[in-house]
């Protein structure tokens, strides 16, 4: 028994410490650094001007077709939203007034929601959303007697980098990370759209402002179809002047 144990012991040791045989190994370490890429290419003029110097413009509004083109490339799932903001928060910044009237009906707190957007293509990643989830509805005719307030109104916020919450509009995606609640990674460079449409990585944006008369901006409103908190209600009217606001397009990882 002792001999057997000794024999196996030496065999075992021999297998563990064998020398003089051809065996060698070289190693290559491969590191892959996947940095998140969110690339938004925007084609637009620096400033989109709406000049209302004719009574027809007040009634019919002014539309700027395809004034902005957005092209997306992303290595991760993504959301894209537009947000209106200003120095004052959620009302237009008045740069100049053309009126010296002391009439209390003249209002210079114009809601940002009076700016309407129309996007093409529609939001393809808004599964389960209940309210209007994008700007794909066509602009309502200016003659509409009882317009749906806020249908195309821009989402606006004093905190523009906080993503829109549940029930707010996105251009693509929505609040949440569930299935079909954000665009999949890809690029407008390689995406082959269905015939007759653009891909979800390519959007054209139209802008419209309809003051109407008196200038109350009847299409402005919240995304829930209610009047804006800063709505101008007839017989009030917008004070003539120069106003500015900022429209940001934010591309972010799906969240």
């Amino acid at each position: 028994m002792k001999k057997i144990i000794l024999v196996f012991s030496f065999l075992g040791l021999f297998s563990a410490f064998s020398f003089g045989q051809l065996i060698d190994e070289k190693n290559v370490t491969v590191t892959m650094d996947l940095q998140p890429i969110l690339q938004l290419n925007m084609t637009t003029s620096d400033q989109v001007d709406f000049v209302f110097d004719d009574i027809r413009d007040y009634y019919g509004g002014i539309i700027k077709y395809a004034a902005t083109i957005l092209k997306v490339s992303s290595s991760v799932s993504w959301d894209l939203y537009a947000v209106g903001t200003s120095q004052a928060g959620v009302i237009w910044d008045q740069q100049m007034t053309y009126s010296t009237s002391a009439n209390p009906l003249s209002q210079n707190d114009l809601p940002l929601s009076l700016l309407e957007l129309h996007q093409y293509e529609d939001n393809q990643n808004d599964l389960g959303a209940l309210l209007i989830t994008d700007y794909s509805n066509t602009f309502q005719p200016t003659m509409t007697a009882i317009p749906v307030m806020g249908q195309n109104s821009i989402y606006n916020s004093a905190a523009p980098y906080t993503a829109p919450a549940v029930g707010q509009k996105y251009i693509n995606g929505m609040f949440g990370t569930g299935v079909d609640q954000g665009g999949e990674g890809g690029s407008y460079l390689t995406e082959v759209p269905v015939a007759g449409s653009f891909s979800e990585f390519y959007y054209t944006i139209d802008y419209r402002i309809v003051p109407s008369l008196p200038a109350t901006f009847p299409f402005a409103g919240t995304n829930a179809g209610a009047a804006d908190a800063n709505a101008i209600v007839s017989p009030q009217y917008a004070e003539p002047g120069v106003y500015t606001m900022n429209c940001k397009y934010v591309l972010l990882e799906d969240q």
């Binding site: 065996i23 190994e25 491969v30």
Partner: peptide, 14 residues
């Protein structure tokens, strides 16, 4: 997105 690693070993053996 992240940094990942693997190793590829080249083994020469009789």
């Amino acid at each position: 997105p992240g940094a990942y690693q693997i190793k590829i070993n080249f083994c020469l053996v009789e």
